[in-house]
């Protein structure tokens, strides 16, 4: 392993291509932290935004007009305003209203830290798109299938959970995939509120080492790989959901 790391130092000395996070332990720690934060942020936001999508689509089918309206307003507001401003709004404007709690060092810190606000803000942002995606999937479930469940005495929630949603899920995965890829890319916004994610840590490294070009290319490759993993996982999920004899 050491030899492998050394190789990058030699690469730097010979060619000037400087990837300090490969040979320098401190920088390696930074990049791994950043990578881990990005992965964590992406995974949590994917999870929450999908839940928001499922719940929102359920509320959109509510018999109450007010409920449906609120969901529609939510969707339109989050779709048609910049996610960065949404993030600032949550972090600064809502953030000051949140009580502070005592921390380990005897001082106080906000109940929700910048990572937490990034999760909330980005989940709601991507969730707004997910609601529409799920709704379009639900529309593809035939009414007669739902009637069969009704006739068996299923409640509205049971029908949604056991019949509508599982069937809708199978047709929306490609659209969902697109949106979640966007979400992973959008996690870079967390940089703006100093969440130490991949972009933030890379920025630290290029400030110290003046190796912007290398770090930029590294970032492009890193996000390409992260997105690739997500797409691969979604395809895997899609295939595992295939029902024999079902679909086109």
């Amino acid at each position: 392993m050491e030899a492998f790391y050394e190789w990058f130092r030699i690469l730097y000395e010979d060619t000037g291509i400087n990837l300090p996070f490969m040979y320098d332990e401190y920088d390696r720690g930074r990049i791994l932290n950043g990578l881990w934060a990005t992965i964590k942020l992406s995974a949590i936001c994917v999870l929450f935004s999908v839940i928001i999508g499922m719940v929102g689509a359920w509320l959109q089918g509510s018999p109450w007009k007010t409920t449906r309206r609120i969901v529609n307003v939510y969707i339109q507001l989050f779709r048609n305003t910049p996610p960065l401003v949404q993030l600032y709004f949550f972090y600064f404007a809502v953030g000051i209203l949140i009580p502070r709690v005592e921390n380990d060092w005897g001082g106080t810190s906000p109940l929700i830290d910048s990572f937490g606000w990034a999760v909330i803000s980005l989940s709601f942002f991507a969730g707004a798109f997910n609601v529409e995606i799920f709704r379009s999937g639900i529309e593809a479930v035939p009414k007669s299938t739902i009637e069969a469940a009704k006739a068996l005495g299923f409640s509205r929630l049971q029908i949604y959970k056991d019949i509508t949603l599982p069937l809708a899920l199978r047709v929306v995965i490609p659209s969902l995939n697109n949106n979640l890829v966007n979400l992973v890319k959008t996690t870079t916004l967390a940089y703006a509120i100093a969440v130490p994610e991949l972009l933030y840590e890379s920025n630290q490294i290029w400030s110290d080492n003046v190796n912007v070009t290398e770090m930029m290319l590294f970032l492009l490759v890193a996000y390409f790989v992260l997105v690739g993993i997500l797409v691969w996982a979604m395809n895997f999920w899609d295939r595992s959901l295939k029902i024999p004899g079902f679909g086109q």
């Binding site: 299938t145 069969a148 469940a149």
Partner: peptide, 17 residues
């Protein structure tokens, strides 16, 4: 009511999944 009254449809309407 629906626990007491069963129904079978023209299109079967089984749950495909």
């Amino acid at each position: 009511l629906r626990k007491k009254v069963g129904m079978v449809f023209q299109q079967y309407n089984l749950f495909p999944h």
